[in-house]
């Protein structure tokens, strides 16, 4: 176990060395230097007109997207990840429980669904913001959670805190299929699921790495080809492509998607205050009428 004392030299040394590098880079680069080359690795540089102009030259991913219902993988198609034997047996049992009506739901207590669910489970709208240095994905599904893909060339953090969505960084690549945003996501919590349904999924169990190739296959159709490396539960990467269509209709703009509001009934209490009162639920999540005000 690393002692606190041993950490001190690292904590002190790192900002100092970064500052020196930043100062050297600042001297070398003139004011015309591209802000997004991140001269100072501790600062998000102020976007310049050149940064915005560069975005205009990239494929335009911005706007509201709906899952493509004509796609073979809507919602899952015949997705069959290359499970290892233990995971295969677990998944088969979850499928059996779901089939007999005693589902073992995987998304509980409003914890974020995280990656890869963020991209492959949603049937709701998704909004993409394209701004200097990053791509931001806003979901309607799963309580309006968000995902950020760094495009500013920053390195993967050393010893990052694992999160539900992980740490994502991407770069544009010219491929025979056209310009493709290649994104690598790491530092994902080991508890996030590789999902095949609301009650069928396998925890990734650590060391999950996801590579996505995101591109416009038509002006208003976006494909995300995911390559999911989960060495503790898969024998080979699980490859699954999801497809989204862009919509300009305002009725499709994403709306608030609170996670658990529907688990409560809106009531007015004796003091005249508007309150949320929990609804009784059956195991499995079905609301029951017993606690509803008569």
């Amino acid at each position: 176990m690393t002692s606190a004392v041993n950490l001190w030299p690292r904590l002190v040394a790192r900002p100092l060395s970064w500052a020196l590098i930043a100062a050297a880079a600042g001297l070398a680069a003139g004011p015309a230097a591209q802000a997004q080359t991140a001269a100072d690795p501790l600062l998000n540089p102020k976007p310049t007109a050149a940064d915005w102009a560069a975005i205009a030259q990239q494929p335009d991913l911005s706007g509201v997207w709906l899952p493509d219902r004509k796609h073979a993988n809507y919602p899952f198609g015949k997705a069959s990840p290359p499970w290892n034997p233990q995971a295969a047996a677990y998944i088969a049992e979850q499928q059996r429980l779901d089939k007999v009506g005693t589902p073992n739901n995987i998304y509980i207590n409003c914890l974020p669904e995280g990656m890869p669910s963020f991209m492959i489970m949603t049937l709701n709208a998704l909004e993409i913001l394209q701004t200097p240095g990053r791509l931001t994905l806003l979901s309607e599904f799963d309580g309006n959670r968000q995902r950020r893909i760094w495009l500013d060339g920053r390195p993967r953090p050393e010893d990052a805190d694992a999160t539900f969505s992980g740490f994502s960084r991407g770069r544009w690549e010219k491929t025979p299929q056209g310009e493709t945003l290649v994104v690598e996501t790491t530092d994902i919590l080991p508890q996030t699921f590789l999902p095949l349904g609301q009650a069928v999924g396998q925890a990734n169990n650590g060391d999950l790495r996801i590579v996505e190739r995101i591109r416009l296959v038509e002006p208003d159709r976006l494909e995300d080809a995911l390559e999911i490396h989960a060495p503790h539960v898969l024998t080979a990467p699980w490859r699954i492509t999801k497809s989204f269509v862009r919509t300009r209709e305002r009725r499709n703009d994403i709306v608030e998607g609170s996670c658990l509001q529907g688990k409560f009934q809106a009531q007015v209490d004796k003091q005249g205050n508007h309150v949320f009162v929990p609804i009784e639920h059956e195991v499995g999540g079905a609301p029951l009428p017993r606690t509803v005000s008569k």
């Binding site: 779901d98 589902p103 409003c110 669904e113 799963d142």
Partner: peptide, 11 residues
């Protein structure tokens, strides 16, 4: 007893 957000409808 966990609270379910999105859940299966198998029940």
């Amino acid at each position: 007893v966990p609270a379910w957000a999105h859940h299966s409808f198998a029940m």
